[in-house]
Design a protein around this nucleic acid. Sequence first.
DNA 1: TCTGGGGTCCTAGGACCC
DNA 2: TCTGGGGTCCTAGGACCC
Length: 414
Amino acid sequence: MYALIDCNNFYASCERAFNPALKLKPLVVLSNNDGCVIARSDEAKQLGIAMGAPYFKIKAEVAARGIEVRSSNYELYGDMSRRVMDILRRLAPSIEIYSIDEAFCDLTGLSSAALLELGRTMRETILQWTGIPTSVGIARTKTLAKAASKQAKLMGGVFAILDERERERLLQAMPLRRVWGIGRRLETSLENAGIFTAADLVRKDDAWIRRRMSITGLRTVHELRGIPCIDLDDQPASKLSITTSRMFGHPVHTIEELSQAVAHYVTRAAEKLRGEKRKTRYLDVFFHSSPFKSPYHAGRAAYALPAPTDFTPTLLQYAMAGVRAQYREGVAYTKAGIMLSDFVARGEEQLSLLQAPADEREETMMEMLDYINRRWGKHTMFYAGAGVQQGWSMKRNFRSPSYSTRLTDVLEIG
DNA sequence: TCTGGGGTCCTAGGACCC
DNA sequence: TCTGGGGTCCTAGGACCC
């Protein structure tokens, strides 16, 4: 049996946890660059604010209805997530952190009564210790546990699928789009074939499903039938790729500014890479203008590196060459990014005969850099190439304090 | 004026091999 | 006249997730 623990309206709930004045108020949290809505309190949902709505389109309505607005504050959410996951680790034998606000637990071996009891304990403990409300779904497969958690959300609390009748009832009431693994495209394609609910889908035969939905879709259907195909992954493999990309706060026209932004993302991506104790063999740099306007231009350059590296200056050289090669004058660029992939574990890299091993001084230099920025704050030491003004950096006009991760932002009560 | 960021997996098609 | 079968690797693109 699996449980899925899902934090309700996670980012909105995090904002509320530290600011009681937001309780019971309609509240939305915006994406990076204050672009669009990525979290809504129940009250905001009831007012009809759509997920993903561009902020500039709903601005007037937000003001008129007195809806509270926050820029996203990932330091805060990341820290709250850690606390929630720590609680689950105490309560369950093994957990898989599935996303910032969700985790699966393997609860094999418990009786029905014990399952429900544990689900309630998880929910109550998390609420009490962090202030975050959750929904807990319990079932034989992960896909069904997901479905159960959606039901739990409606009913407020814990929902378990413990027998066949329950499972069938739920599938019957479940529109395709609600199924974990079925997105907009599959929904449309299946509806054209006369399938509208999860119950309709599980009645089709395997060959038909395989053809229509590929092997992943077939797995989903088996899971809906109660046959586990997706195991708990409590030791996730290390990442296959690392991306750092951002929209700009304002359009970027010059190669100088574009280079600065890309250099900034390279240093961030390289930090993440070293944090994973990996080196990369592949660097991809990309930038483009607004897809909502023409003419549209997208530049991209990819490099297979001669030797695996985690050394920021080396990565910067390639990325800057990519910018020079692909930049086009007169384009209003709105976004850029860096992707690293094809990793090897640090210390296990295969060298070629003609190559010198990595320079120890380079490693020491990166260690110092990372240490200083960890100890004294993110931007203490940085590459001049990444710019000092950073006029392109994103907008965050409604940001809340980093209550739990920055000493100067800790709440005062008195 | 203003439309997020970071991932994974699968498939199709081309190049190439024997 | 008759022009196979099986495989790998790579990339681009599509689809999904939160």
